[in-house]
Design a protein around this nucleic acid. Sequence first.
DNA 1: CTGTTAGCGCTTTCAT
DNA 2: ATGAAAGCGCTAACAG
Lengths: 334, 334
Amino acid sequence: MESRNMNIYDIAKEAGVSISTVSRVLNHKGNVNPATRERVEEVLERNHYTPSAIARGMVSKSMRTVAVLTVDIRVPHYARTAYTIERELSHRGYEVTLCNTGGEAEETEKYLQTMLEKKVDGIVLVGSVFNTICKKPEIKKLLRTVPVVLANGKLEMANSYSVLVDDKYGIALAVNELLKKGHRDIYYVKDMDTVSARLKWEGFVDTLQHAGIAEAKKKVLHTTSDLEGGMRAVRELIQSGKKFSALVCGEDITAAGAVKALLQEGYRIPEDVAVTGYNNSEYARICEPTLTTIDNKPELVAMFSVQLLTSLIEKTDAYSSCTIQPELVAGKTV
Amino acid sequence: MESRNMNIYDIAKEAGVSISTVSRVLNHKGNVNPATRERVEEVLERNHYTPSAIARGMVSKSMRTVAVLTVDIRVPHYARTAYTIERELSHRGYEVTLCNTGGEAEETEKYLQTMLEKKVDGIVLVGSVFNTICKKPEIKKLLRTVPVVLANGKLEMANSYSVLVDDKYGIALAVNELLKKGHRDIYYVKDMDTVSARLKWEGFVDTLQHAGIAEAKKKVLHTTSDLEGGMRAVRELIQSGKKFSALVCGEDITAAGAVKALLQEGYRIPEDVAVTGYNNSEYARICEPTLTTIDNKPELVAMFSVQLLTSLIEKTDAYSSCTIQPELVAGKTV
DNA sequence: CTGTTAGCGCTTTCAT
DNA sequence: ATGAAAGCGCTAACAG
């Protein structure tokens, strides 16, 4: 590694000017004699001068950084959201600190504490779990001092905005599609236990009840949020001997598992059993037949989140919370 | 949002002590009278005092932050690597700034510039593209002043370490598996054009030639790095009328596409055509039949990267660059 | 055990 | 058009 970085004093001395002048040419602010400017710029260039964002932050009280808290960046849906948030913020001159909280309150609290010490300009919470986590008073207290946006969730605080996804409506789209094709024996494959997961489940039950189908509440298969979870749910359903002609899954990954298990058991899709997924992910396209799924638009969620956060940070209060409507994406499994 | 944050002076005044004493109790450093300590802690508590990491960074010249540059966090392989890096660094008290460079030199340069201004403690470059990008003098110059680890690549600099994945060997594993099963008409589905992609291709050619198979170099299908790319490669191969019994793919996603296209065209897998993927990703497991693939161990790469980076940062020069050997993971496509 | 003081590198008045 | 000086919030000698 090379010698110590030069600071603004070193540059000033070498250029034979004061630090104020250097600062002026650095920030293109105020008037500087063209000749002086040129001389300073030459010195800057020659020494590969890099201003210290820390020292600047000391004055401005901002490092132009936003914290993005997510459950687990390996989950494609979160990756898509975080990606778009990062790119958008980068264009606006902010860097993103990534925090994988595992959906745990304790980790969330630790990360938030550190982020507050680092004086982040704002925080984006990506995922419906944060609805629950933010209810905890110790977390709520931490969030009170900084602009916050909750991507897919509602936060009741003056310094926060929410971007909501109408997941209840999303699942209703899937159920209605199946009803339209004449399906009556429809089961729901439920994995997680977040606010969003609950909304999906409600969407399923309400839509079935609305269609006059009995015992909708009993038609739920609980499982884990992975490929194996989808497979297990199907095997248990088959074993139970219950009659079924369609499965609505809360995630593409469980839907892919369901399809896999059904095929292995000799069912034809969609002739014998129809399946729907959720997220419109790459998983849906890899699955053969391609999954009919629900697009819950993570990129749009990300764009709105960034828009709201920056309006909160820069106090250009022109926006407010918003809700996004999912769409059905037709595949070959219905 | 609440009132202005208190600083160490406010606390000192309220506790009736000097800022040094407050600093001492804050950092559990030096001796403080238990009674005084308690009083200060009470004031700290009552005011929800949060020390400024920026001011601390001003003194220590470090914000305990590491930049992770990757091509695109939405690519599962990078997500797995970045996830593990983030979690490991978090345990060691560092935060991670995520940068999606798109594999472009210009974006990389911009991000690096900013990261240097923010005085990051180190940089991890995730992905073989950075081999090429870091050759550019303007990029190389930027990297010269900070600890760097290249995850899957070689960087010839005093302040850097490398974690290499033996991708040539990885593909050789796949090819040998196919040769063992009697396959002779094997094609390689090549997508990208990075150092790693080239190594894979070399592994394919060398292994075939070693087995005495003619024209190995001509048995390459060029395509894009996505599901559609894998499908297209297969369709073109079929259309060409060439004889083939096995496909070695450079990525799971192209392998999944190949499988999909083959099934749609009526081929049985693996009876008519065998297929291998690369990455041991979720895609390999979703694919039906499950892909035989190569595990290139992103988590291990991440662990080593963090180990090497922290040894570089803390100057505990006990480690050096290392190479990771992939492993074959048997699926049902061979 | 505690307080005083000098930076850390920069921006920002305020003079000149 | 330029410079001098204060201050951002903290740590780390150094004194007492």
